[in-house]
Amino acid sequence: MWTRCGETDGAWGPAQTICTLWKRPYVAINLVAIAILSRGKCGLSKCITRYLVGMAAADLLVVISDVILRWIPLIYFRGSFLFITPVCQCIYFLIFASTVVSVWLTVAFTFDRFVTICCETLKTKYCTDKTAAVVIGTVSVLGCLESVPWIFTLQHSYIINNVPWRCINKPIFYTSAAWTAFELVHRVLTPCVPFFFILLLNVLTVRRILVSSRVRKGLLDRSKRGNDKDPEIANRKKSIILLFSITGSFMLLWATQVGFNIYKRITKNYTYSPSDPVYIVEDIAAKLQLLSSCSNTCIYVLTQSKFRNELINAVKFPFNVIVNLLKQ
């Protein structure tokens, strides 16, 4: 867990630079998204809003646990209480749990959009605010339960005054068939299975949109309105672009991490020196994964014009307050 960014005592290298540059915008992006979406003034249904807020909250927890509680102390606060073994075990658990919940909420939201577009009979029953709350709660609980075993893969590195410090993987974690199977199942569930589900659901959704658009365009041609711009077809094209953006973003940002995990298992090499190029690849893979914690919210929400208006109003608000005070 604690063997990457900022771990070395040598010169400030590329990995440490990446850590410092990439950690800054995550918290602000998710906090802004949560604040604006929670107001309910973006023209979105309560169901969609609940999913987006849940995704942003899960992503924010990823940032807090993985960036603030892990990466920053590694660079600036080595030796703090965060490096006591039970504490870093809890941080390790939070990292895995929040990541799993974040990924599977993306799947849940994609499935909700699939039902809305492709399943008219199920739409009225499934795509509701109550169902969204139940799904988010279920995903959160299951994600936490699935991440509990990771706590027991760690042990202390050394003991000072009867206090265990730092977290390293137990040697049995790399040799035990049971732990190997557990890690394999975890890697399959996050993110390989989500890859498959998101790709499949988006393909089916896009197919339905294209078929509906062809039928609608044919009807317009028959009514001699084929030369007019149809707002419904334009909206469906935007939906296709949005869905492909989500699929491509999620898969690209996670692909390096998935590939690196496979590489580690094949080569059975789990530690690297700062001079090893693989060390930089490992850091880049971790940062790309962290970047997905804010990209989903940005892609889903920032494409909405009403959200952009709310964001502009939020930026203007403090200046408007100052101007009003000066006028008084």
Results as ranks from 00 to 15, higher is better:
residue 228 D to F: 03
residue 209 I to E: 11
residue 271 T to P: 05
residue 265 R to T: 13
residue 177 A to K: 10
residue 211 V to P: 06
residue 193 V to M: 06
residue 237 K to Q: 14
residue 274 P to A: 03
residue 260 F to D: 14
residue 218 G to R: 10
residue 207 R to F: 03
residue 216 R to N: 08
residue 182 F to R: 10
residue 237 K to W: 01
residue 228 D to S: 10
residue 296 N to M: 14
residue 244 F to W: 08
residue 281 V to G: 10
residue 288 L to D: 00
residue 253 L to M: 09
residue 230 D to W: 03
residue 223 S to G: 08
residue 188 V to Y: 02
residue 207 R to E: 15
residue 194 P to A: 00
residue 216 R to C: 04
residue 178 A to K: 00
residue 230 D to E: 07
residue 280 I to S: 05
residue 281 V to F: 02
residue 247 T to L: 03
residue 188 V to L: 08
residue 235 N to W: 08
residue 204 L to S: 05
residue 284 I to K: 02
residue 178 A to F: 14
residue 274 P to L: 02
residue 290 L to D: 05
residue 250 F to T: 07
residue 188 V to I: 13
residue 248 G to D: 12
residue 234 A to I: 07
residue 294 C to K: 04
residue 239 S to F: 04
residue 282 E to G: 03
residue 184 L to H: 09
residue 263 Y to R: 15
residue 219 L to K: 08
residue 262 I to C: 10
residue 225 R to L: 14
residue 295 S to V: 11
residue 295 S to Q: 02
residue 209 I to V: 15
residue 179 W to F: 04
residue 259 G to N: 08
residue 238 K to N: 12
residue 250 F to E: 09
residue 231 P to K: 07
residue 204 L to I: 01
residue 256 T to C: 11
residue 179 W to P: 02
residue 211 V to F: 03
residue 261 N to M: 06
residue 256 T to L: 11
residue 252 L to S: 15
residue 270 Y to E: 04
residue 275 S to G: 06
residue 269 N to K: 12
residue 180 T to K: 15
residue 199 L to E: 11
residue 246 I to E: 02
residue 183 E to A: 12
residue 286 A to Q: 09
residue 191 P to D: 09
residue 213 S to I: 00
residue 186 H to Y: 11
residue 281 V to W: 02
residue 258 V to S: 07
residue 246 I to W: 01
residue 180 T to I: 01
residue 249 S to T: 13
residue 281 V to D: 04
residue 199 L to T: 15
residue 277 P to Q: 03
residue 219 L to P: 01
residue 196 F to W: 09
residue 251 M to D: 01
residue 217 K to T: 01
residue 213 S to D: 15
residue 296 N to P: 10
residue 243 L to I: 04
residue 264 K to F: 04
residue 175 T to F: 09
residue 207 R to I: 05
residue 222 R to A: 06
residue 208 R to E: 12
residue 204 L to Q: 12
residue 206 V to M: 03
residue 270 Y to T: 01
residue 182 F to V: 00
residue 260 F to L: 15
residue 235 N to R: 15
residue 266 I to C: 11
residue 246 I to Y: 00
residue 232 E to R: 09
residue 242 L to H: 12
residue 270 Y to I: 09
residue 197 F to G: 06
residue 244 F to K: 06
residue 263 Y to D: 13
residue 236 R to G: 07
residue 286 A to L: 08
residue 189 L to C: 13
residue 194 P to R: 01
residue 252 L to I: 13
residue 227 N to I: 03
residue 268 K to C: 09
residue 206 V to Y: 00
residue 183 E to C: 10
residue 195 F to I: 09
residue 276 D to W: 08
residue 284 I to T: 12
residue 211 V to N: 12
residue 197 F to L: 15
residue 274 P to I: 02
residue 255 A to F: 01
residue 212 S to I: 04
residue 208 R to N: 14
residue 179 W to S: 12
residue 178 A to I: 15
residue 256 T to A: 14
residue 205 T to G: 14
residue 226 G to M: 11
residue 186 H to I: 12
residue 232 E to W: 06
residue 243 L to M: 10
residue 266 I to T: 13
residue 179 W to V: 04
residue 294 C to E: 01
residue 209 I to H: 03
residue 189 L to E: 07
residue 215 V to Q: 15
residue 245 S to A: 14
residue 287 K to P: 00
residue 212 S to H: 01
residue 210 L to H: 08
residue 208 R to A: 14
residue 186 H to T: 13
residue 231 P to R: 10
residue 198 I to S: 02
residue 185 V to S: 13
residue 294 C to P: 00
residue 282 E to T: 06
